[in-house]
């Protein structure tokens, strides 16, 4: 799963430690999420969304879903031409 946590944090000039404090997790966990090594649980994703005042899908997104959407669009196009 990809995420914009690092970008959002940088926009607000927050350190990993400050973000970790605000989300009540360790700094290592923030680092692992930012580098894509660890996917957060749903409650933690909700906490992050609440903190940044964004929807979850504006912070986290699954590249596989992009492929699904693209495949669906291709299918729809095919159906339209047929």
């Amino acid at each position: 799963m990809k995420n914009r946590l690092k970008v959002l944090r940088a926009e607000r000039n927050w350190t990993q430690a400050e973000l970790a404090d605000a989300l009540d997790v360790s700094r290592q966990t923030i680092n692992a999420i930012e580098t894509g090594k660890f996917d957060p649980s749903l409650p933690l994703a909700f906490r992050a969304a609440r903190l940044f005042a964004l929807r979850i899908e504006e912070i986290f997104h699954d590249p596989a879903m992009d492929n699904d959407r693209s495949n669906l669009a291709t299918e729809i196009k095919k159906d339209t031409y047929v």
């Binding site: 607000r12 000039n13 927050w14 973000l19 404090d21 605000a22 009540d24 997790v25 360790s26 903190l51």
Partner: peptide, 16 residues
């Protein structure tokens, strides 16, 4: 820095 609000007892302190 604004908006950031930590829990009353921080994670590090609780784990320690």
């Amino acid at each position: 820095m604004s908006q950031l609000k930590s829990p009353e007892i921080g994670y590090c302190l609780r784990v320690r």
